[in-house]
Every structure is written in structure tokens, then in C-alpha cells.
Design a protein around this nucleic acid. Structure first.
Ligand SMILES: [Zn+2]
Ligand SMILES: [Zn+2]
Ligand SMILES: [Zn+2]
Ligand SMILES: [Zn+2]
Ligand SMILES: [Zn+2]
Length: 647
DNA sequence: CGATTGAGCGCCCTCTGCTGGGTGCGA
DNA sequence: ATCGCACCCAGCAGAGGGCGCTCAATCG
């Protein structure tokens, strides 16, 4: 944009301090130098930052361009939402004239003329800037940068270079040993532009610069890249292109880090990362940007401008990359970021980072409540907790009983305290569990209670022809036939075989079941309808009246099933080692048993037969040594009811 | 004197990374 | 019902690359 070009330009030449600040940051500091007399207040100085010039906020000190050709509509667009818009439409004239100070030093005067005041000299604002002071006010940053990067211009240390034979410029501190060089240099202070472009009227000081300019009109690019097909108007552009694209030569190195750049201006821009400098203040909020582009981009959030439109859904975005990310929604090829510490994957890098932060980092170690071990992060902690699954960590202090569930241990402790908190209001019976009380009330105090019918045995084993009412039982049964069965499963099968011989129900396997469905979640609220049915291989129906866990001195659990069939009641005892059971791979097995081992029971039998069995059941329960055990691996809701084969 | 070199400003682009609101699902 | 978590998405800032153009200084 010409505005910055001209002003920055003038300041650099006239004040002759180093042009080491990239882009128009120069302006701000120049402005600081200029304003050292009658306009010498901070506010006035501030008005001269480039941001302000660009924003048009410099109340009255407006921007000018002599060459209207390159007026950048986008930059003007930034100004559109500014309150001094009308001022920007009238360009001012900026000229620079030398003036001799008393001390012999040369000063310069920046004359800002408002267009409507062009005929009236007294309306001009005149800023005088002193070159000596300007030099003194060079910031450390700038000098450092120059020193470290050896990009000093010849004019940067004019006084030192001055010798008796040197030819000095009166307009700046340019010196040269040759007179003709000085005279050529003086042209740079001339505003004369004798070489006019025939296309756009613009004037140039030299024929060469005019020729370059004309080439931009005609598209003539005489300088061809020898590595690729690119071509450029000037040789400088070509050299730069080659460095960027082919040789990657980066002559400018950062003294603070390992950054280096092709262009010095890029290094200067980069240095703001180290200094934190943010010269471009947003006029609408507190944001300040380190460069003009970011400010311009930022301004879109105030103007609402959304230049990027999705060609598929017409959604609009303020940034190109937002559109790019959005377009992935339509194309569907989404990247996958895999966590190195666990199997998790995330759709975006950021999400993966959050995942790692949440699961794989922890301020302090996490301690396992069951075993006290500490873990550095949530992931290993959770993994560890899984290892406790099926483990009976909650041990009774008074007997060898152990359970994986604290709830079950608490329930078990009622045995030791001889508590039965659930008292039937209609009779003297009391129970240790609420659901047992409910069943009792159904059976004894609810004449309308109708026990559910047993269902058909729909699930038949393809190997041996045996059929089951519940698919889960069939699946479990299939392990017997499976040669690939795991060692644990074979162990179970062996155990089953061992246990068979102590069964007293016709020497046949029986199935413990209830009527709740393990396959689908129908009748969830139906916890009134539990029953324990025992089914022999002969298809004979038994009813489990009681499943009781006894524990002897060495921790071996005995499961006692009290069963009955249509005609008689039988007591069946199954011995199994509690530790072995904990090793079984099927945790459901035990939970199923647990749910079956309740004080109350229901039966599909007729009312009068129920009477008979209840009597037997109560006999069992009143045995002092018999301990009802709820403590199997039931991590789920205590109302959960599943089925099992019971041998 | 023309050509070259290097600096400088400006514009635009991409890649990157963070934030914060929202949703679905399983524990 | 609630929470944790993976996932989704838009918004937006930081940093840097590349080029168009101009000009002063210097070179040959
Ligand atoms: Zn032109
Ligand atoms: Zn090339
Ligand atoms: Zn650096
Ligand atoms: Zn803002
Ligand atoms: Zn879209």
C-alpha cells in the first residue's frame, strides 16, 4: 500500500535511522522521533503508529497517497468500520524539506497537508524531526539486531565514517569519498520523477525503475528461473525465489534461536517472538498483533467478514484453515491419531493431547483402594483395577469369607452381627435383604401372587442334543465340547465331572435358573418373579429351595443347594474350593449363583407343593451353622438375575 | 550508464495449535 | 441421574513461507 510505502520510506531516508524494523513497525518509531516540538505529546506520537495509519484512527492526521494506482482496496476495507472513514477518502500530501538548525545539524520537516487546505499554507501541520535525536533514540533492539546480524547500512554509523575528505549529504548522513557518488545520491532526495509511465501516469526517478514498472503492466518477466518455470520482473525477485525454492540459502540468522530466513524482514518479524512486541493495536478490543496480517485477520471478528465459503454447503469462515478443516466433514477422509500409551485413537491431534493429559498424566499417584498400590496415571490405575475383577479382596475379619464386592462383605457381616434389618410387618419373619422380604411377602401375604410359568427349552446343543431354557446356559455348556477351550474352562469341566459324582439328584446335571432373561432386557422391573428351578438331564423339574454357602476352616466354600422336584425335596451339596472358583474365567458363573442364593424362593409349582417346600426351607435356614452367603463376584446390581447350570 | 544487489514494505497464503461448546455412550 | 471420555466442530491466534513491487547503493 502506498501509504506505508511513502511514509515509511520518507522516514527511513530522512531520519536515517536503521531500517531494521520490518515492515511498517518502522513508522511507529519514526513517529516517535518526529514529534519532538510543538506536537510533542504522547497522544500525538501514538497517532503515528502504522496501525493507526492503517486504521485511520489518527484523528485528523490522515493518510495520503500520491499514487492512487495501487490503492489497496483491502486495506481500505479495514478502515471501513472506522469512524474516520471519510477522512481516508481524502488523501493528504506528505512532503519533506530540509531545514538547517543552529548547531549546523541538518533537520527535516515533514509537512502534512490536508487536501482542502492545500491552498492555505497556514493550515499545514509541520513536524520537525531531528536526525541526531532520532539516532540517539534508536532502540536497543534495533541496534542489537544490526550488530548481531551485520546488516548495517552504510549510513548507520555516519559520524564515525566521516573523514576530512568525505563528501557529505546535507539531507542525510550519507557520506562518500567520491563526489559523483554524492551527486547521484542527491537524486534520492529529489522528488523529481521525470520518467512517467504511459499506462498509469506514475512517475519514476530512473528509467530502469520505470522499465521494471512497465513490465508489471505488460506482464513481461525477463528473469527466468533456471531450476523451474518461474519468471520474474526483476533479477532480485528471481534471486529471492531461487533461495526460497531451490537453494534454501538463508543468510539471516536469529541470534536467539536457530531460526534463519531468506529475507531480513522475516528475521525482524521473527524477532518479535522473542521481544513480545505487539505494535498493532486493535481499535475495537484489547488485542494487539505483532504484525499487520494478524491484525487484519483479527478485525474480521469485529466486522463479521467471512471471506471463505464452503462450495458444498455454503458455510462461511473467517480463516481459510477453518474452511479447510470444515471441508473434511464432506470428504470424510479423517486422520487417525493413535495414542502411544494405550490403544485409544483420536480424530485430531488436539484431542489426542487431551486424552494423554487426562489418562496418562496425573499430578499425584493414584492409590488402589483394594490393595493400596499407587499408579502414576489414570490409565494404569484403571488397568490395575481390572486385575481385581474376580478377585476377592474384601475379606471378613471374623471368618475366612472373602468377596470382590464390598457390598457383599457388608451383607455378609450381618451374619456375624446376627442382624436382619428387613422385618416383615405382617409376621415375625425378618430378612437380611430387602428383596428377600419382598419375596416372603409375596409368597405368604399376597394371595394374588402368580408365579411365572417356566419357559420352553428352546436352546439345544448340537453336539449332545441336550437342551436348555436359556441360551447362556447352552453357551456355557458348549465349553465342554470345545477342544479349544481354555485351560480354565477345561478345569471347570473337570471340576464339573468331579462334582457330578457327589450330586444326589439322580446322578444327573441340573440347571439352576430363574425366569429373568439373560439375553434381552425384558421385564426389568420384574424382580418379584425370581425363582430357582433345577432341571435334571431327564427333564425332571426340581426347585432350589436354598443355595447356601458354607465356609469351613481353610476357606473352602461349600455350596449347599436345597432342591425339590415335583414329588420330593432333596438336599444337594456341592463342594468347591473358593480359590479355584475365583480363577474361573467366567465371573458370571459366580454372580449367577449369588443371585440364586437367597433366603426366599419362588417356584413354578403349585401352591400346595410350595407349602411343603417352604417348610423344608425354613428348617434349613434355622440351622445355626449355616451361613447364607451373598459374597460372590457380583459387581452388578444386586437385583441382577441370571441363570446357570448347577451341578 | 545499465545491471545487479540488497533492503524494505506489503499482501496473502499455509501450517500449527489452543480453546471452548456440544454430543453420544458406557460405566 | 451423573460423570468421564472420546469425538465433533467452529473460532481464532502464532509463526513462517513466498512473492509483487519499489528503491538506493553498488558494481562493472
Ligand atoms: Zn504504470
Ligand atoms: Zn525456480
Ligand atoms: Zn529467534
Ligand atoms: Zn479486536
Ligand atoms: Zn461445507
Amino acid at each position: 500500500m502506498e501509504v506505508q510505502d511513502d511514509i515509511g520510506y520518507l522516514s527511513m531516508e530522512a531520519v536515517d535511522h536503521h531500517d531494521d524494523d520490518s515492515q511498517s513497525q518502522e513508522l511507529k518509531e519514526d513517529a516517535t522521533y518526529y514529534v519532538n516540538d510543538e506536537e510533542n505529546d504522547d497522544q500525538e506520537q501514538y497517532l503515528y503508529t502504522e496501525a493507526d495509519v492503517q486504521e485511520g484512527t489518527s484523528s485528523g492526521i490522515t493518510v495520503h497517497t500520491r499514487e492512487t494506482e495501487d490503492g489497496d482496496p483491502e486495506v481500505l476495507g479495514i478502515d471501513d468500520d472506522d469512524d474516520s472513514q471519510e477522512e481516508k477518502e481524502e488523501y493528504e500530501t506528505v512532503t519533506i524539506v530540509p531545514s538547517q538548525g543552529e548547531s549546523g545539524e541538518v533537520s527535516y520537516v515533514l509537512i502534512v497537508q490536508q487536501p482542502e487546505a492545500k491552498e492555505k499554507e497556514d493550515d499545514m501541520k509541520v513536524f520537525e524531526f531531528d536526525e541526531a535525536e532520532g539516532d540517539m533514540q534508536q532502540t536497543d533492539n534495533e541496534e542489537d539486531l544490526d550488530d548481531k546480524n551485520t546488516v548495517k547500512k552504510a549510513t548507520s554509523t555516519p559520524k564515525k565514517q566521516t573523514t576530512a575528505t568525505a563528501h557529505m549529504c546535507n539531507y542525510c548522513n550519507y557520506t562518500s569519498p567520491k563526489r559523483y557518488l554524492l551527486s547521484r545520491h542527491m537524486k534520492s532526495h529529489s522528488e523529481e520523477r521525470p520518467h512517467k509511465c504511459s499506462v498509469c501516469e506514475r512517475g519514476f526517478k530512473t528509467l530502469a525503475s520505470l522499465q521494471n514498472h512497465v513490465n508489471t503492466h505488460t506482464g513481461t518477466k525477463p528473469h527466468k528461473c533456471k531450476y523451474c518455470d518461474s519468471a520474474f520482473t526483476t533479477s532480485g525477485e528471481l534471486v529471492r525465489h531461487v533461495r526460497y525454492r531451490h537453494t534454501h540459502e538463508k543468510p539471516h540468522h536469529c541470534s536467539e534461536c536457530d531460526y534463519s530466513s531468506v529475507e531480513l524482514s522475516k528475521l525482524k518479524r521473527h524477532m518479535r517472538c522473542h521481544t513480545g512486541e505487539r505494535p498493532y493495536q486493535c481499535p475495537h478490543c484489547t488485542y494487539a498483533s505483532p504484525d499487520t496480517f494478524k491484525l487484519k485477520r483479527h478485525l474480521r471478528i469485529h466486522t463479521g467478514e467471512k471471506p471463505y465459503e464452503c462450495d458444498i454447503c455454503q458455510a462461511r469462515f473467517t480463516q481459510s484453515n477453518s474452511l479447510k478443516a470444515h471441508r473434511l466433514i464432506h470428504t470424510g477422509n479423517k486422520p487417525v491419531f493413535k495414542c502411544e500409551l494405550c490403544p485409544a485413537t483420536c480424530g485430531r491431534k488436539t484431542d489426542l493431547r487431551i486424552h494423554v493429559q487426562k489418562l496418562h498424566t496425573s499430578e499425584r499417584p493414584l492409590k488402589c483402594k483394594r490393595c493400596g498400590k499407587a499408579f502414576p496415571d489414570r490409565y494404569t490405575f484403571k488397568l490395575h483395577c481390572k486385575t481385581h475383577d474376580g478377585e476377592k479382596c474384601f475379606k471378613c475379619d471374623l471368618c475366612p469369607y472373602a468377596s470382590s464386592s464390598q457390598r457383599h462383605l457388608e451383607s455378609h457381616m450381618l451374619v456375624h452381627t446376627d442382624q436382619k434389618p428387613y422385618q416383615c410387618e405382617l409376621c415375625d419373619q425378618a430378612f437380611r435383604q430387602k428383596q428377600l422380604l419382598r419375596r416372603h411377602q409375596n409368597l405368604y401375604h399376597n394371595p394374588n401372587y402368580v408365579p411365572p410359568q417356566p419357559r420352553e427349552k428352546q436352546h439345544e446343543c448340537a453336539e449332545c442334543g441336550r437342551s436348555f431354557r436359556h441360551k447362556g446356559n447352552l453357551i456355557r455348556h458348549m465349553a465342554i465340547h470345545d477342544p479349544e477351550s481354555t485351560a480354565q474352562e477345561r478345569q471347570l469341566a473337570l471340576k464339573i465331572g468331579r462334582q457330578k459324582r457327589i450330586q444326589i439328584i439322580d446322578g444327573q446335571q441340573v440347571e439352576v435358573m430363574d425366569d429373568d432373561d439373560e439375553d434381552d432386557e425384558e421385564d426389568e422391573e420384574d424382580d418379584e418373579t425370581q425363582m430357582l428351578a433345577v432341571e435334571g438331564d431327564d427333564g425332571q423339574q426340581y426347585v432350589v429351595l436354598e443355595v447356601i454357602h458354607l465356609q469351613d476352616g481353610d476357606g473352602t466354600e461349600q455350596t449347599v443347594a436345597v432342591v425339590g422336584d415335583d414329588t420330593e425335596l432333596t438336599t444337594e451339596t456341592v463342594m468347591h474350593d473358593a480359590t479355584d472358583m475365583a480363577d474361573l474365567s467366567d465371573p458370571n458363573l459366580m454372580s449367577q449363583l449369588t443371585d440364586a442364593s437367597n433366603d426366599g424362593f419362588q417356584s413354578s409349582l403349585t401352591e400346595d407343593k410350595l407349602e411343603k417346600k417352604v417348610a423344608v426351607k425354613h428348617e434349613m435356614v434355622t440351622e445355626d451353622d449355616v451361613k447364607t452367603c451373598f459374597g460372590f463376584d457380583d459387581d452388578d446390581d444386586e437385583e441382577t438375575e441370571e441363570t446357570m447350570d448347577y451341578y
